[in-house]
C-alpha cells in the first residue's frame, strides 16, 4: 500500500526510488505493443524475444566497434530486427495457429543457442559488456518512446491498414473476398512487430551494463505473451495495461514476489478460461492446421 501512497504524495521520491522498475515497465510496455501488432492481425507469433536479441546485440556491438552515435546504433538494431523479421516471415507466415507459434519459438531458440552462443563477436555464453550503458540516462528515451509508439500503433489500428488487419484476424477467407492481400498484410504486421521488439531490445541495453543471452529465451516471450493475454488485445491499451500491472505486481504485493510465477500462472488460467475469447484477437476459430489451411469455404 505504501507503494501507492508514495506514488501520489511524493511522486519525485517515488521516481527516484523506483527508477529501474519504471524503466522496466516502459520496456515491457513497448514489448506489449510489439506483440499486440501481431495479435491484432490474428497471428500468435512468439518470436519477440529473438528480435529483441537482434536489436540489443546490434546496438552493443556497434557501440563497441564503430564510432557511430548511440541513437544510430539503436536505429540500426531495430531496422536489422525488422529486416530479419521479413526474411523469417517469408516461410513462417504460411503456417498458422499452433504451428506458427512453435515455428517462432524454434526461431528464438535457434537464434540464441545456435547463433548467439556460437559467434565470437557476441561474447558467446558470457554475453557482452555494454560500453554505453547509462542506467539513469536510459530511462528518458524509454519514457518518451512509450507514449509515441502507443499513439502511432493506436492510430494505425484505425487506418486502412489496421482495418485490413482486423478483417484478417476475424476471417481470412472473407478478407480475401474483400480484396485484401492477406499474406502481404500479415507480413507487414510481423515486420512492424519485429521492428518494435528490436527497438525495445536496443533501449534495454541502454539501462543494463551487460547483454546476457539468457535474457532472450522463450521464457521472455512467454512473459510478453502474458501481458497480451491478461490485458486483452482488442486495442493497444490492453497489453500495455497488462505489462504495467504484471511488472509492478511483485512490487505492490511484496509477500507474493517469490511466488510471482504462481500468480502469473493463475491469472493466465483464470483469464483464458473465464473471459470471452473475443477479447483475445488470436483466439478466433479460423485457426487450423497448416495443411488443412487450403480448405475453401464449406460447401453444401
Amino acid at each position: 500500500m505504501d507503494f501507492f501512497i508514495q506514488l501520489f504524495t511524493d511522486p519525485v521520491g517515488f521516481y527516484n526510488q523506483h527508477e529501474l522498475l519504471i524503466a522496466q515497465i516502459g520496456i515491457n510496455a513497448i514489448l506489449a505493443i510489439s506483440i499486440f501488432v501481431t495479435f491484432y492481425s490474428g497471428q500468435l507469433t512468439l518470436a519477440n524475444a529473438g528480435f529483441m536479441a537482434i536489436g540489443a546485440y546490434t546496438t552493443v556491438i556497434m557501440s563497441l566497434y564503430l564510432p557511430t552515435p548511440l541513437p544510430v546504433d539503436m536505429l540500426v538494431g531495430a531496422l536489422l530486427a525488422a529486416a530479419i523479421g521479413f526474411l523469417v516471415g517469408l516461410p513462417v507466415l504460411r503456417l498458422r495457429g499452433v504451428f506458427l507459434a512453435i515455428a517462432t519459438i524454434g526461431f528464438v531458440e535457434a537464434l540464441r543457442l545456435g547463433v548467439i552462443l556460437n559467434v565470437p563477436i557476441t561474447g558467446e555464453g558470457q554475453g557482452l559488456k555494454n560500453p554505453s550503458a547509462d542506467p539513469l540516462g536510459g530511462i528518458l528515451p524509454i519514457l518518451i518512446s512509450v507514449p509515441i509508439l502507443t499513439y502511432l500503433v493506436w492510430r494505425l489500428t484505425h487506418t486502412r491498414l489496421g482495418q485490413a488487419w482486423a478483417a484478417i484476424r476475424e476471417d481470412e477467407l472473407a478478407a480475401s473476398s474483400n480484396g485484401i492481400n492477406v499474406p502481404a498484410y500479415k507480413m507487414v504486421a510481423f515486420v512492424i512487430s519485429a521492428l518494435v521488439a528490436g527497438y525495445a531490445g536496443a533501449l534495454e541495453t541502454h539501462i543494463n551494463f551487460f547483454v546476457d543471452p539468457t535474457e532472450y529465451s522463450v521464457t521472455r516471450t512467454i512473459q510478453i505473451l502474458t501481458f497480451a493475454v491478461v490485458g486483452g488485445t482488442t486495442n493497444v491499451i490492453g497489453p500495455i495495461v497488462g505489462a504495467v500491472f504484471l511488472t509492478a505486481l511483485p512490487e505492490i504485493v511484496r509477500q507474493f514476489a517469490a511466488y510471482r510465477d504462481v500468480v502469473n500462472g493463475i491469472i493466465l488460467i483464470l483469464v483464458i478460461t473465464l473471459t470471452s475469447s473475443d477479447r483475445l484477437a488470436v483466439c478466433t476459430p479460423s485457426m487450423t492446421c497448416p495443411w488443412k489451411s487450403r480448405k475453401a469455404p464449406s460447401s453444401a
Binding site: L44, G97, V98, A101, I222, L225, V229, Y259, R260, D261, V262, N264, G265, I266, I267, L268, I269, I272, T273, S277, L280, V282, C283, T284, P285, M287
Partner: peptide, 22 residues
C-alpha cells in the same frame, strides 16, 4: 466454451508456470 485450440496452449502455459514456481 468452444474456445479454439490455441487458447489451450495459453492455459497450459499457465499451469506449467505454477508447477515450476512451486
Amino acid at each position: 466454451r468452444n474456445a479454439p485450440p490455441i487458447s489451450a496452449l495459453i492455459s497450459t502455459i499457465g499451469l506449467a508456470l505454477i508447477f515450476v514456481a512451486i
